[in-house]
Design a protein around this nucleic acid. Structure first.
Lengths: 122, 122
DNA sequence: TGTTTCCAATTACGCCTGTAATCGATTTAT
DNA sequence: ATAAATCGATTACAGGCGTAATTGGAAACA
């Protein structure tokens, strides 16, 4: 059972800082979305049901914290895309962005340095 | 209006070869999915409505061909993921797979060659 | 020409998602 | 102690998606 786009926005808040009360999550999201409070409560409950987050009572309210690690979420999503569109390999994706001229000088320098480092460590 | 996962599987068939009749699409998909014929017809119709494909009558049946280019679809999906998860940059994605030890010797060699080529051409 | 066959179009349906209102219980204030 | 406020839980609802059955009209066959 995987988490949706909107749910991942809520996760982002909790990944950045936790534990947080529902109110604190609502406050954080007010800056970037115009979701109403009940909407965010719903998303928190769905994430609970999916066991992506965990809630512990703190007085009369709950404190939420992530169970799903951001790394794992990012990896599942990235690998899914790579598998579906690029035969599971990273190089064709890089080639794609290159062909689309979507790599800046800076991107290229960054990649070059990174690959050299990876290659050296390997 | 964007095309769904199942719809993209149908698109894959048409990207590979076109134009194709519904029957030919069904035959192609029989190899990789166990979708029933009506399911595939539905997907073709939804793609038509989304103007991702186009149909021209050929006698009593239709021949379908893609309007949406694979390149554009791939780019939208990739850029979406990159923007959401990697600050829109390719290098952090490569770094992610590297840290996860998901890059084989071959992947690294491939990337190295590719980056050098890109860098030379730039 | 009436009947069967073939297709495309229409309709179906349950689940997930985005978005929220309402209910109910618990706490705080009067 | 009763009223008001606060929260979490429950319910809502339309649209998209996966999956498909049914219908209706044209084509082929008998």
């Amino acid at each position: 059972m995987s988490i949706s786009e909107a749910e991942s926005v809520v996760m982002d808040v909790l990944w950045r800082e936790h534990p947080l009360s529902a109110d604190e999550v609502v406050a954080a999201l007010a800056k970037t979305t115009d979701w109403q409070e009940p909407t965010i409560k719903t998303l928190l409950n769905r994430l609970l049901k999916k066991r992506a987050i965990d809630a512990q009572r703190d007085g009369r309210r709950y404190l939420y914290r992530p169970l799903l690690k951001r790394e794992d979420y990012v990896h599942a999503a990235s690998k899914g895309l790579l598998d579906r569109l690029f035969d599971g390999r990273v190089a064709p994706l890089v080639a794609h962005f290159s062909e689309r001229r979507k790599l800046s000088k800076k991107d290229i320098a960054e990649l070059k340095r990174l690959i050299e480092e990876i290659d050296r460590d390997a």
